[in-house]
């Protein structure tokens, strides 16, 4: 029983550590903000989730302490991490960070341009 529990704990923590490493390699290797956001927002979620689950199983199965806080932590992580990735890439786009040259097509560029023009027109009228 203890062996099974330890296998479970080790497996989840290894999965977590591997995906955390993938996150950092992705952030180093990928060319621009947006592709880096892919690595950072996805892999780090699963990485931290795996480590937290391993900790949860360790304290539950080996120490007999059922920790609700860790489960809540996992839940909060799931709610916040995709929104963090979205907000950072959106802020980068709106402040004019160009995507890498590899980018094939950009549907958003015209929309942002138009929005900025209409904004400029209205501010001129106010003056």
């Amino acid at each position: 029983m203890i062996v099974l529990a330890n296998i479970l704990i080790v497996a989840t923590i290894i999965v977590g550590v591997v995906f955390t490493i993938v996150t950092s390699i992705g952030v180093l290797r990928l060319p621009d903000v947006y592709t880096r956001a892919h690595a950072a927002s996805k892999s780090s979620t699963l990485g931290v989730l795996g480590i937290l689950l391993g900790v949860f199983f360790h304290f539950w199965l080996n120490e007999g302490h059922f920790s609700i806080q860790i489960l809540l932590g996992i839940l909060f992580l799931f709610i916040t991490s995709p929104i963090g990735g979205h907000l950072m890439s959106r802020a980068a786009y709106m402040s004019g960070v160009k995507p890498t040259e590899l980018t094939v097509k950009d549907d958003l560029a015209e929309v942002v341009k138009k929005a900025k023009q209409s904004k400029a027109v209205t501010s001129q009228k106010e003056q």
Partner: peptide
């Protein structure tokens, strides 16, 4: 996550991002 893993550890980056 598996797709990001495969993408990142590939020796040559072969991606075409698009919005």
């Amino acid at each position: 996550n598996i797709s990001v893993l495969l993408l990142v550890i590939r020796p040559k980056l072969n991606i075409q991002p698009r919005i």
